[in-house]
């Protein structure tokens, strides 16, 4: 049988934060199963993810997720071509469970092991919408990351800009907390924003700077100062307007920097990915703005695959498989793994 006739099947693992997920992916772009066990309810008790608790939950879930993923996909170990796993970035104790389980499965069944960068996974979730065309750019926005990644070709990633302080998702959780919204706050703030108006005109950071970096700490402080001042004088602010003003500022900064980057790095596709990519305000804004960029199509990661999941890990793993990127049994978690910075910056 020629290699093109045989389907490639990868058992993918993801455990970098508070979801335990195992998926079976065919040829990098068909999801046969994608089991996600989320711990959000547990961490809501503490107002945010507690790493030690996250790690404990992953151990409770991981083998069940393997079983469910295989049975839902109706495949056995003999059908698999490889095992893939997120090895960073993320919480070290959480990553370790997925890495250990994946290594063990690969060892037990003599399967190759593919180490996957979690952020590459987020970007390649776009494969479930349409094939990625290079060169491409990704705007990655999540609870831990906000970065612009240039991809000159398959399996190549170069950071051209990133947040200097808070990630966008982090800022959402913080202002959410100020407004009494439980973690994770992104969805509620997004909903409120759609019911209000930008009346507070919070600062937009670094819009005039000559780089593609982001900053959200000034915005966050302005938000907190505004609500704090209102509390002191006994004034009640409209939460919908607060949310709308905050979201407008975030979206302005993200969109502005991204459009500027696209001028210097012309690409076929702009991929929007990461947990905050589920934000409707951001999706609508980029839909609108990208109409002014001829030759570049916006590819938004599917809503269901914006959060952490193993399907996205399998999507990239198939590329790594073809490029012979394999790890041995010493593979360890790398909590601060990141892409390299662009080698020859345009500016």
């Amino acid at each position: 049988m020629s290699p093109t006739e045989k389907r490639n099947l990868i058992l993918a693992f993801e455990s970098s934060c508070d979801e335990t997920s195992v998926a079976v992916i065919e040829d990098g772009h068909r999801i046969l199963s994608n089991i996600v066990a989320t711990q959000i309810k547990s961490h809501q008790r503490f107002g945010g993810v507690v790493p030690e608790v996250a790690s404990r939950h992953h151990i409770e879930e991981v083998t069940l997720c393997i079983k469910d993923a295989l049975s839902e996909a109706q495949v056995g170990y003999d059908d698999l071509d490889a095992v893939a796993v997120t090895y960073g970035p993320g919480l070290v104790g959480a990553l370790l469970i997925g890495v250990t389980a994946a290594k063990t499965v690969a060892f037990a069944h003599h399967l190759p092991l593919i180490p996957v960068n979690h952020m590459a996974g987020h970007i390649y979730a776009a494969r479930y919408v349409e094939p990625i065309e290079f060169p491409a750019m990704a705007l990655l926005v999540s609870g831990g990351h906000t970065e612009l990644v240039y991809m000159p070709a398959e399996n190549q990633f170069e950071i051209i800009g990133e947040t200097r302080d808070d990630a966008a998702g982090e800022a959402y959780d913080k202002v959410g907390r100020v407004m009494g919204v439980n973690y994770p706050a992104g969805k509620t703030v997004d909903e409120w924003a759609h019911q209000g108006h930008d009346t507070f005109h919070f600062p937009r950071a670094m819009e005039t700077d000559d780089n593609f970096d982001f900053s959200f700490s000034g915005l966050k402080s302005a938000f907190i100062n505004t609500t704090h001042h209102a509390d002191q004088i006994g004034e009640t602010l409209d939460k919908h307007d607060l949310a709308a003003s905050f979201q407008q500022a975030v979206v302005d900064v993200l969109a502005e920097k991204t459009l500027r980057a696209l001028k210097d790095y012309p690409v076929h596709q702009l991929i929007l990915a990461g947990g905050v990519a589920a934000n409707l305000g951001l999706r609508e804004r980029l839909d609108h703005d990208l109409e002014q960029v001829p030759g570049t199509r916006l590819v938004k990661a599917p809503l269901k695959l914006c959060g952490d999941n193993a399907a996205m890990i399998g999507a990239f793993a198939e590329v790594a498989y073809r490029h012979h990127v394999f790890a041995d049994a010493t593979l360890n978690a790398d909590p601060s793994l990141e892409f390299d910075w662009v080698e020859n910056p345009v500016k």
Partner: peptide, 19 residues
């Protein structure tokens, strides 16, 4: 050690489950 017992147990239970 939390990390130590996690690695041993995850390896052992995954091996038992997968085999």
């Amino acid at each position: 050690s939390y990390t130590g017992i996690r690695i041993a147990v995850t390896t052992a239970k995954t091996l038992a489950a997968t085999l």
